[in-house]
């Protein structure tokens, strides 16, 4: 980790009319750091993630991002062209439902290669080689490169989605419940893979999850949200082992012990 953060969020608030989405969110994210946002349904986790990834415009507040040339930019002041370019080069977004993040009617290879073609790669051989390489890194066999993702299982689709996002070596990845809807053994494998990739590539990530085990395994720091506010934040182990807020204590004690 370097000493300069990658993302600085200050006083971010989002209201849907009079209704609160999330409010007064402040944090800094450093390169290589994984931040988990946990909380129950309706606590504003996804609203926050959508604001950070510029899918939603916040009502107030700023989020500054350090671009590759070390210039700080407020991401809400970027032009649409710059924002979309950022989204497909330096950022990634892993959706809970892989069908939202993949093109289901084109092959796995083209799914991975799309970002490369979007930034101007025009050599078929190179694009295909990168696609095969990335499929290997997310443990998808090379002979599936020309298959459409609709013939893939849920876990494979999710891994394909991750490969598709990582092919341009982004520095920041947003993940919305990346293991939701997968059975536990597939979840474990995916988490293992994600942890390896995050460590290997030095990715910074913001992971929204309601699963504390996911937060424990992947994240360095976590924020606990309730009713649109961040009620507790800190190192993951500290928050989970020594929760201070009553709600966090409730959350931690609700984990089923087998």
């Amino acid at each position: 980790m370097t000493d300069s953060p990658l993302l600085r969020v200050s006083n971010l608030s989002k209201y849907y009319g009079a209704r609160l989405g999330c409010t007064d969110v402040n944090f800094e994210l450093y390169p290589g750091e994984v931040l988990a946002v946990v909380g129950e349904s309706g606590s504003g986790k996804t609203t926050l993630l959508n604001c950070l990834s510029t899918n939603l415009e916040p009502t107030s507040g700023r989020a500054e991002y350090r671009m590759r040339d070390d210039v700080w930019r407020n991401i809400y002041d970027l032009s649409e062209a710059e924002r979309r370019f950022l989204m497909r080069t330096d950022w990634g977004f892993v959706h809970q439902n892989p069908a939202d993040g993949l093109r289901m009617t084109v092959s796995a290879g083209a799914n991975v290669g799309e970002r490369l073609m979007a930034i101007g790669d025009r050599h078929y051989g190179n694009i295909r080689a990168s696609a095969v390489d990335w499929l290997g890194r997310v443990e998808i066999n090379e002979d599936r490169v020309d298959d459409q993702p609709r013939s893939f299982s849920g876990g494979m689709r999710q891994r394909l989605q991750i490969a598709r996002n990582l092919v341009t070596s982004p520095r920041l990845v947003f993940m919305d419940e990346p293991t939701g809807g997968l059975d536990v053994s597939v979840q474990a494998r995916l988490l293992d893979l994600l942890r390896g990739l995050v460590g290997e590539l030095g990715l910074a990530a913001v992971i929204v999850t309601h699963d504390l085990a996911v937060a424990r395994l992947l994240s360095h720091r976590m924020m606990v949200m309730k009713d649109g506010r961040v009620i507790e934040s800190g190192l993951t182990d500290r928050v989970l082992d020594d929760p201070r807020e009553p709600y966090t204590q409730l959350l931690v004690s609700s984990i089923l012990q087998v």
Partner: peptide
């Protein structure tokens, strides 16, 4: 970029 995805699919298939 998407237009090239179509051409990529052609070559892959």
């Amino acid at each position: 970029g998407l237009m090239h995805v179509k051409l990529y699919e052609d070559i892959a298939t």
